[in-house]
Design a protein around this nucleic acid. Structure first.
Lengths: 140, 140
DNA sequence: AAAAACTTGACTATTTTAGTCGGGTATATA
DNA sequence: TATATACCCGACTAAAATAGTCAAGTTTTT
């Protein structure tokens, strides 16, 4: 049970932006160098972040990306949704007819997975990007 | 971000046992039929559950498996650990020298993933198998 | 003896992941 | 206005993980 690297790198890259942008656009090249993430991979990630309105881009020399919301307002769940489609952890298929493991009725563990889902999602809902920056031992 | 089917089926199968064993061994064949899980796959799953002392087996006719602990005492985390090695969600590699994404220092998001890990694990730690059975709309 | 049920390791098709590649387009600045 | 920098974007791919199956047992009850 783990998050994929796209989501992980996205959070890392946006945290980097929050720290290093001084109201300037931050280039992927700089993020790549600081965080040790492939530039080509970052491009793919930021494409989706842009489409989902998490960042906006500035083209040309001295271009880069800018956070649309302030770190205080940007929920981690927004980031994950942008990359992952959804944060849904598991749970039974929502087919038209069959719901759980091919049965027409809810399976024995159905409610449990729903609870898990809520538990995890509320964590991401309640965390803001700015929360990641607090109390960090300054480095990078 | 999702749980694998082995873990999911394990929880489902053990919940089934908790419901249907009346102090008797429950055969994988019966679980397979009731829960719609492949018998061959269940065998593989129960092998691990047995090795990890979650269930014990009774051979021969009318044989099957028996829960080692009562559902009230069996933590969901025990089940997941038996199948998954660990419930660790993400987090940075714990190499000897490099810790986070190839850097020698903790990465900017390191503490966040640790928190997430604790959040999720505490959910599984605090849930018992018996909790899944409460309030369920009786069916299966 | 025979049937039910557990035991175990090996194997495999499919899907997902974690990227790379190639060929763009826009824009600031020298 | 040339050019370097940086975003844009779809297509591709190697490797790993997943979700199983298969074969060939052994044990125990009736």
């Amino acid at each position: 049970m783990k998050l994929n690297t796209k989501s992980r790198y996205a959070v890392m890259a946006l945290a980097d932006m929050a720290v290093f942008s001084n109201d300037n656009a931050v280039s992927l090249r700089d993020i790549s160098l600081r965080q040790g993430i492939s530039l080509l991979y970052l491009e793919q990630i930021f494409l989706r972040l842009k489409k989902n309105n998490i960042v906006k881009s500035v083209r040309g020399i001295n271009g880069g990306y800018i956070l649309v919301k302030s770190p205080k307002e940007l929920k981690i769940s927004d980031i994950l949704i942008a990359l992952d489609q959804k944060v849904k952890t598991i749970g039974c298929k929502k087919d038209s007819k069959k719901s759980c493991n091919g049965k027409s009725t809810k399976c024995i563990t159905h409610n449990f997975w729903d609870e898990l889902d809520i538990h995890i999602n509320s964590f991401f809902e309640n965390k803001k990007l700015s929360d990641l920056l607090k109390n960090r031992e300054a480095r990078i």
